[in-house]
Design a protein around this nucleic acid. Structure first.
Lengths: 352, 352
DNA sequence: TTGTAAGCGTTATCAT
DNA sequence: ATGATAACGCTTACAA
């Protein structure tokens, strides 16, 4: 049988014939401030160690009105992209002696609302939210109450909260320019969830890059409606089975890219030869495919870290105008994009 | 400026000229039990809604000695395998109105110890731990104090705590039998972290399967020392560059498999043709590779779910003898293993 | 049908 | 150099 009796300040105080205040002070390194005798100090320290005393953070938080806890709200923690963000949120928070309560909203706005309520009920000092991205009233409430919060990845247009996200527009723009520079003009855009900001920005980058090179975007080439792999698979299949003359696919998420890869394999199209592929979102396995896939990498480590920093700026009471951080993406050139200019150098050098 | 004044039971009580107890009772659905008038009930409910009252869980937990919180301790939340477990731990816990405090121990035993201490300081009611897997004294302490805990994935031999893990032995055994049935006898085993139980069990399964077929395990073919992709890459390279006559690789984690795939691509060995590959641990991308990789899938969704259930059994005071759950793995046959038995008649291209 | 008061474990404000 | 006491917000005997 284990000891059922919790060790508290009381316990120590009684055993030593001291008051709880004294014990509390010693254990909070206030001995000097209160000029507590060396003997008492040691006695308390020893007893605390001996009883393996752990201060009750609940009581502490209640009294101090400070929980040293942040809420992390994520649509799907099993998605590696979010998992990486979560990891660095946790690490950065821990380095500041804060803990993370995790809520997986399963891409449901209702769960997101419930989660935020729950977290506030638990008196988290701030929230880091990757919103599902469709409704925003509950987030507006946070804004109105100026509750500390940072939005990550999925921005909402009618919101004015601090955020961290990738520069999705520029990342897509550059990627498409790269494709065009390699002689591609018929580029399909396999998109994610249309209502969400990353998708919108990426599609806009895609369109603008085409436009800047005098190519009229063909809306039939913008296809798909979710970030999952199924979409990538189906859309690629449809596109190629009807003999659409596309030479390149631009997949707006790594899962979509995965679906495309599967479809291409089934159709026996060799990536980087018969057809080109470029994915938004890098993941370790993409470097190990045959051929390695060219991607637009997002700095998710940095996103997690910065989200916490932005949150702490708010906690520190920095009233500075609402900061939004757009992190540059990194273009990673590998072997999945064919250079059509080298193959048929009759038409290509004019475009730049 | 937002209202700084927290809404509490007090607030409601004062506004209504009632006592906090009455308000508390109404809000906790004890109206009937205490025969509180319908008028009071509605008044309280309305006011609570109007003020958007959220009960302070800190105070509640302190009073009730019940936090409705579990601690989740994971070596690396960005590892998809663990992320999936985490997801289903969260979902299952939430369905029981419990929250999760997440700690990423970064594969460090020190951080694991610190995390557990922290979580207990926060009065979590139970712990779900995927241990780093090397030291176990701190876990023994939990056992000694019979603190509710469930160990996941990485078991420790000198521990007698409830656990959930895959049947790594059987999974590996079956996989190697499959390879042997397909005519392979020189099978390399690319192992993970030697000290950890999943690795030990898998290696044992590998050895026993060979033995059962009269093949003497060549210890030179058991190589590697970590679950990461770097190991898989290096060991595969070494093995093949010295012209070891292996016909198949058995990678003991998906990351190791990834490294092997990269090495094979560099060496221009065609998987499923020139050499065979089989991975422990399925991940979505493995189905989409060319060729799709044959794997041993683990039920990580189920692991997360069951871990929570086992924990709740303990919370409910079920003293039944310490339950350990070994989940069967699932063999997923794809295209990465060559059938040497069929090929033997017309071999023309096997230059190694 | 409702109110009073004690207490959960801690820290801060007075005292002494 | 140390102790008593109140308070954080809540629940629950015990009263009324």
């Amino acid at each position: 049988m284990a000891k059922k009796t919790l060790t508290t300040l009381q316990t120590i105080a009684e055993r030593l014939g001291l008051s709880v205040s004294t014990v509390s002070r010693v254990l909070n390194d206030k001995s000097d401030q209160y000029r507590i005798s060396a003997r008492t100090q040691h006695a308390v320290q020893d007893m605390a160690r001996q009883l393996d005393f752990r201060p009750n953070q609940l009581a502490r938080s209640l009294r101090l009105r400070k929980t040293q806890t942040l809420g992390l709200v994520i649509p799907d923690i099993s998605n590696p992209f979010f998992a990486q963000i979560a990891r660095h949120v946790e690490i950065e928070a821990r380095s500041r002696h804060y803990s993370i309560i995790l809520c997986d909203t399963q891409e449901s706005t209702d769960l997101e609302i419930e989660s935020i309520r729950l977290l506030r009920s638990r008196e988290v000092e701030g929230l880091i939210v990757v919103p599902v991205g469709q409704k925003s009233d509950h987030l507006k409430t946070l804004q109105a109450e100026s509750f500390p919060v940072v939005i990550v990845d999925r921005l909402l247009s009618d919101l004015d909260l601090p955020y961290v996200a990738s520069d999705n527009y520029q990342g897509a723009y550059d990627a498409v320019c790269y494709l065009i520079d390699h002689g591609h003009t018929r580029i399909a855009c396999l998109q994610g969830l249309p209502g969400t900001s990353p998708n919108q920005q990426r599609v806009r980058g895609y369109r603008d890059a085409l436009g800047a090179h005098g190519i009229v975007p063909d809306s039939d080439l913008i296809r798909g409606d979710s970030y999952g792999s199924q979409t990538g698979y189906e859309q690629t299949l449809q596109l190629l089975l009807r003999n659409s003359p596309v030479t390149a696919l631009f997949a707006l998420s790594n899962l979509i890219g995965l679906g495309a890869i599967r479809a291409l394999a089934e159709l026996k199209r060799r990536i980087g030869k018969d057809i080109s592929l470029l994915c938004f979102d890098d993941q370790p396995y993409l470097a190990y495919m045959d051929p390695p896939i060219t991607t637009v990498d997002q700095q998710n480590t940095e996103m997690g870290r910065l989200a916490v920093r932005l949150l702490f700026e708010q906690l520190a009471g920095q009233t500075k105008e609402n900061k939004g951080l757009l992190l540059p993406t990194q273009f990673i050139e590998r072997k999945s994009v064919n250079n059509l200019c080298l193959e048929r150098r009759d038409k290509c050098d004019s475009t730049h």
